[in-house]
């Protein structure tokens, strides 16, 4: 698909879409400062806490999240330092990332979905990923949470910056009764997963998260032991079925059997996964939004 840019035509790619909005190309400085501090062997928890305190809204929200049912710690956590010690710097970094990104996109309006619906869907998908990861005995479940949280962020950029294309994809999806990502494929030659992948790549997020977003609708990769794309796929399927929030998708995306098989979740466990997702979602959604 061609895109008119000033007076010349250029090929529309996922990278072009991501590069179109300079505000989104990089993550805010605060996040990188935090990452550097956490990675440095000479810095202390106080250094990390100081960075978080430089954004009082972020500090307050992190404390709220640390005290929520999401972590269910028995004692109240009332300083950022204690939150860091109890939750761990890695997890706190990822919580900071989620809050920073939600804030970054807060002011972007689009005519297709409300920000509230979008993040409700995204947070629920993050939680569903985390629930599945815990069910499967994975220890790095925050990584699953973030992959789910960002799985459809590419569509938010498309909705915001390319409304004409988004109108066409939405219409085609309804007219042909196909999932929106397939309509995106038909019109653009790629879909929101490619845009999301390009964005996460720009942000230098871990490769596993980039791939989880990129391959969420297939094809299946053969990376041994890496089940992140499969988890995101199934989580998105569950959250669409539960109708929590909206990603602009009108249909429950088709469950890919090989993805389902790879996770080895018995059908009898579905009820438990849904209940867990729903309960955790109810307790945290308000903290982020």
């Amino acid at each position: 698909m061609q895109l008119r840019n000033k007076d010349r035509m250029m090929e529309l790619t996922a990278e072009v879409i991501v590069g179109h909005n300079p505000d989104l190309v990089t993550l805010p400085d605060l996040y990188f400062k935090l990452e550097q501090t956490i990675a440095s062997p000479t810095s202390s928890i106080d250094d990390a806490a100081e960075i978080i305190h430089s954004d009082p809204a972020l500090a307050a929200r992190l404390l709220k999240i640390a005290n929520s049912a999401f972590y269910s710690h028995p004692v109240e956590i009332n300083t950022v330092q204690r939150a860091l010690m109890l939750i761990g710097t890695r997890q706190l970094k990822e919580l900071a990332m989620a809050t920073v990104v939600i804030d970054m996109f807060k002011s972007l309006n689009n005519p297709f979905i409300s920000m509230k619906d979008f993040w409700e869907h995204s947070i629920a998908c993050g939680i569903a990923c985390r629930v599945i990861a815990i069910y499967l005995g994975k220890r790095d479940y925050e990584q699953y949470y973030l992959a789910g949280l960002f799985h459809v962020i590419g569509r938010l950029i498309l909705f915001t910056d390319f409304p004409e294309i988004s109108e066409k994809t939405t219409e085609l999806s309804l007219e042909k009764k196909i999932p929106l990502f397939e309509a995106e494929n038909e019109i653009m030659g790629f879909n929101h997963a490619n845009i999301g992948h390009a964005l996460l790549k720009n942000w230098n997020l871990p490769l596993a998260q980039q791939q989880a977003v990129q391959f969420q609708h297939g094809p299946q990769t053969d990376i041994p032991m890496a089940i992140l794309p499969e988890t995101v796929h199934v989580a998105d399927w569950l959250v669409n079925g539960l109708s929590i929030g909206s990603s602009g998708e009108q249909y429950v995306p088709p469950l890919i059997d090989s993805f389902w098989q790879r996770l080895e979740i018995p059908e009898s466990a579905l009820g438990e996964l849904i209940d867990q997702t729903d309960q955790q979602y109810q307790s945290v959604a308000g903290l982020f939004l």
Partner: peptide, 21 residues
């Protein structure tokens, strides 16, 4: 009618999920 029409209606997980919903 609406939501699951892109899914394989005979898939075990789809059947179970619809029942739960």
């Amino acid at each position: 009618m609406n939501q699951f029409q892109c899914n394989d209606p005979g898939h075990k997980a789809v059947v179970e999920f619809k029942k739960l919903l």
